[in-house]
């Protein structure tokens, strides 16, 4: 089991080095999106509009943060259950994202998508929203403010801890 430092946007090469079970520390920009935001982004694409962020090499974080208390860039900020985003996953990788970050097992079709596109699925510790919020240095509302906590946020993170759950070869930590 190795530890890697990842800087966004992620390159194909850095993804290929990641193996199931490895620990990573992410520094750079990640984008939050949950069910409602994925649905809204899909609609944008069907209407021929551009996504709120450049998807190439991006990490999508399945999260809906709490409002920021005074003095903090963001509130509690842990992952939500990833499997709810399974139906959107292939489309997002077709657009060029490099990784998804969430919690819990995924459906089989996700593993196939990751292998096809050389992507990875990372997990952060669910229910550790206060600890993970400390790794967020800046937060900016990017799109869909009407969705409240389900809006798309751009988060600047430093040494955000995660674990490689499914690697680009299809090895799956939940199947071990």
């Amino acid at each position: 089991m190795k530890e890697h430092r990842l800087t966004t946007p992620l390159s194909k090469k850095s993804l290929a080095n990641l193996a199931c079970g490895d620990e990573v520390l992410i520094t750079g920009t990640i984008y939050t999106a949950r069910d409602a935001a994925h649905k809204a982004m899909l609609k944008m694409m069907q209407e021929g509009r551009e996504l709120p962020f450049d998807p190439r090499g991006a990490i999508i974080y399945f999260a809906g943060p709490s409002p920021a208390p005074p003095g903090f860039p963001i509130g509690s900020c842990g992952p939500t259950t990833s499997s709810r985003m399974d139906p959107f996953t292939r489309t997002m990788f077709e657009l060029g994202i490099a990784a998804q970050l969430g919690k819990g097992p995924r459906g089989q079709e996700v593993t196939k998508t990751l292998v096809d596109f050389g992507g990875v699925y990372l997990v952060a510790l669910g229910g550790a929203g206060a600890l993970l919020a400390k790794k967020v240095k800046k937060a900016k509302l990017l799109a869909f403010p009407e969705l409240g906590p389900e809006a798309v946020y751009e988060l600047e993170v430093e040494d955000f801890p995660a674990i490689v759950a499914i690697d680009s070869k299809g090895n799956n930590i939940f199947k071990r």
């Binding site: 999260a63 509690s76 229910g127 550790a128 929203g129 206060a130 400390k134």
Partner: peptide, 14 residues
């Protein structure tokens, strides 16, 4: 995590 929440006022979970 729960110690941070208690100290900072960040919710235990989002």
């Amino acid at each position: 995590n729960y110690k941070i929440a208690e100290k900072t006022g960040l919710a235990i979970c989002q």
